[in-house]
Design a protein around this nucleic acid. Structure first.
Lengths: 194, 194
DNA sequence: TGCCGCTAAATGAATAAGCATTCATCGCTG
DNA sequence: CAGCGATGAATGCTTATTCATTTAGCGGCA
């Protein structure tokens, strides 16, 4: 059996277990059972429990950010870019609920490493938004008095809060596309030049 | 020494310790030390560690929601109400950083009780926003096609994300009032009837 | 006023359970 | 049969919780 197989299996199992129980209440033996390996096997692939969590972030979030960037780059119009961003964000939360749940819960811990993580990885993500805003401002489409540094967070926060609703509810109470449209719509009218 | 003194002291100490270390990494002995009581004394006032966390929420968040409601009620104009809400939200995060930090971190855990908590307590809070929106719609000030259930979350999420920035950074990178103004400004233009 | 003794509050050392991590052993494969 | 990945029981540490003991406050009594 190849290395990559086990590593992958453990990561996938960990995503499920962390989502269900949270990092601290998750047992290594839970993850081992879910991955169908022995407890000790996990330590052949990861240094410790925390390392599993970090690996989940490293390997899963990176992919997602890259995809989002690519999609946004394909659009010409800044307004359209904003819409695409919103849609992609919510779609990912729906398709990958466990991961979304972990991001919601664990990426907010006060652990130092997590704090660093949030700063670097998340900056990269929300900066996609601020650069769209700047493009729009240059073109004269968006209001110049909007601060991209604040607006990016406002928009991201709005999407993140909708994601939280998904994660807490057994079923999405709103349709993904409607929601993405409504949120980008409010935001776009909010920052549109008059 | 009266009962209320110790209870209060322990709660206050717990807020600090939970904020610094997070619920799971916080030790009872840390809280006891911070409150200047013996470890065992804590169990005269609380059933267990989790009960301390719940008490923090019960006693501190309730007060805050009541204050916000009162302030909002004093305003006549729905637009002004939105501005006041934003300002109060961010001001509280600044003035009571430890509590804001705990809300950010711990109220997102997957624990069942916490999930319930979020649903009930937070609903009460964000519903202040949706009822303002409905008032504005009735008056013809706000767009009728905006769904209050989505818009309330978008607005709350925007504020919550700014709060997160406060909590992660040693110093507020933006001025509270500027931020509140900018966010409510974008939101209001976003939902204004044309 | 000062002294007892009673009760309730407070203490913190001891307990006991939980669980991450280790490592001696196994068994498959080439 | 040598080497290497896998195993899972055993280890040992961490910490929430308990409880036997101490301390403080208070009311009654001489």
């Amino acid at each position: 059996m190849k290395n990559s197989d086990k590593h992958e299996k453990i990561i996938r199992a960990a995503v499920k277990v962390f989502a269900k129980k949270g990092f601290f209440s998750a047992r290594i033996s839970d993850i081992a059972k879910a991955a169908k390996v022995a407890d000790g096997t996990i330590y052949l692939y990861f240094n410790n429990k925390f390392d599993i969590l970090i690996s989940v972030f490293d390997e899963e979030i990176g992919k997602f950010i890259a995809q989002t960037k690519k999609l946004v780059d394909q659009e010409e119009n800044p307004q359209r870019k904003i819409e695409v961003f919103a849609l992609k964000h919510l779609a990912m939360a729906k398709e990958n609920k466990s991961l979304a749940e972990i991001i919601q819960m664990e990426l907010r811990q006060s652990h130092k490493l997590i704090k660093e993580y949030r700063k670097t990885i998340f900056s990269e993500y929300v900066d996609i938004i601020s650069s769209i805003i700047r493009q729009g401002q240059t073109k004269g489409i968006f209001r110049k008095d909007v601060k991209p540094g604040i607006a990016k967070r406002a928009f991201f926060g709005a999407l993140d809060e909708m994601t939280r609703l998904w994660v807490l509810s057994p079923k999405p109470p709103y349709d993904i596309e409607d929601t993405a449209k409504q949120i980008s719509n409010i935001f776009l009218q909010g920052i549109n030049a008059v």
